[in-house]
Design a binder for these strands. Structure first.
Lengths: 149, 149
DNA sequence: TCTAAAGTCGACTAAATCAGTCAACTTTTA
DNA sequence: TAAAAGTTGACTGATTTAGTCGACTTTAGA
């Protein structure tokens, strides 16, 4: 159930860019603040650019900046684009469903669907703005519960 | 955010063993019902045995069977033992915390913690018995919600 | 118009993990 | 004592991951 370093580092970069909205930042500057090597960051930023989350300016004084407002950048979508489907198994994926030989009647699929849906619930309701403003609340202390209506 | 085939196949095996409680099942029989090759199942069952979820009997008439009652087999624990921590990132892991250079003040960690906690909430509240009796309810149709108290 | 600063692109690699195979071995029962 | 079954360890092939490297293009400003 892991997030790879690519996804993690992409989110780090978006956060740093969000903290400097309006200003372009060079790969080197982003690298300093995210602690990701610039060679690797370059790859990730290029991918974020292709996905239209960021844009860039070449030449002297160039660099990267956010393409959309932080409130319009959905974390679920970022994770999905960089890491693949949110579902732990293809059979429970909404965006990239893969049939399984054990369907129907599989007693595992409902579990994977539930896991997928709760992950999606959290990630798709979080925007970059939420992260920037520390609006993600912890479940610790049972502030949150999942319950059946 | 994937479950590997090892975790999936281990759960399949446990389900099949749960459906035949009291009877030993050979690797070959389990293989037929889970659609996992017996060479690979052998590896997985051995691991499940070391973890004390199943037990085995050698020789003619031998095979595998559950070691505990299905109601005592916690799916979160099975997944954790076979796949590693439930948390998507080490910094948010409860059972295997790994420090990160960006702590404290990291704006991502609360998100990973929330994801970990919701995954744990689902998986740790599910037992093998729940799976066998199809007691895992789907989030579809918004039967469930996550909310802040 | 030249130069240095920046992003862009493609090829390559080293390590890790995963999924799976195989052969030899031990235990047990009939 | 033979056959059925689990046990063990070594091995392999494919894939993914996390980078590295070098050559190239674009741009601003002196």
């Amino acid at each position: 159930m892991k997030i790879s370093s690519k996804g993690e580092n992409a989110l780090r970069a978006l956060i740093v860019l969000g903290q400097h909205q309006g200003n372009v930042m060079t790969i080197e500057e982003i690298s300093k603040r995210t602690l990701v090597t610039d060679n690797y960051l370059e790859k990730i930023l290029l991918q974020l650019k292709k996905l239209d989350f960021v844009t860039s300016k070449r030449g002297i004084g160039g660099g990267y900046l956010l393409r959309k407002k932080p409130s319009e950048i959905n974390i679920g979508e970022v994770v999905r684009q960089l890491e693949g489907p949110l579902s732990p198994m293809g059979c429970a994926s909404v965006t990239k469903y893969e049939p399984c030989e054990l369907e129907p009647g599989c007693q595992l699929k409902p579990l994977w669907s539930l896991v997928r849906d709760t992950i999606a619930l959290v990630l798709e309701h979080t925007t970059l703005e939420d992260l920037l403003e520390n609006r993600v609340s912890s479940l610790k202390g049972e502030d949150f519960v999942v319950f059946k209506k």
